[in-house]
């Protein structure tokens, strides 16, 4: 699977796990993600719900540093984002 295919698939693939980090300040949402991504199988999607503006930048940056894949971030109707990450290894 190429990374482009994986990215396209990730955009529609439902998350295997949703982490509710709403109301939590960075770095807590990232700490939760780093721990819980290990609970899902490889190539599965973890969705982090967060409303700290730092999470919007920091979760994609964490993916880059940790070689996971940031699939996309979607705004939530009540404020904040659902930030989707695919476990790469």
């Amino acid at each position: 699977m190429t990374s482009a295919q994986a990215a396209a698939e990730g955009a529609t693939q439902p998350p295997a796990l949703t982490i509710d980090a709403l109301g939590k300040k960075c770095p807590i949402p990232i700490i939760m993600l780093a721990e819980q991504i290990n609970y899902v199988p490889r190539n599965a999607i973890v969705s982090v719900l967060a409303d700290d503006p730092a999470a919007f930048t920091d979760i994609p940056a964490w993916c880059r540093l940790k070689s996971h894949h940031h699939v996309g971030s979607h705004e939530l109707p009540g404020g904040g984002w659902a930030i989707h990450v695919r476990r790469n290894y």
Binding site: K25, C26, P27, I30, D52, P53, A54, T57, D58, P60, A61, W62, R64, L65
Partner: peptide, 23 residues
Amino acid sequence: SSCTASTLRPSHVLEAMGVLTHG
């Protein structure tokens, strides 16, 4: 980092670069 500034937002520089803003 956001918690250290007077605002609740992290630095616009770090955000624009797409690098880690915490710590």
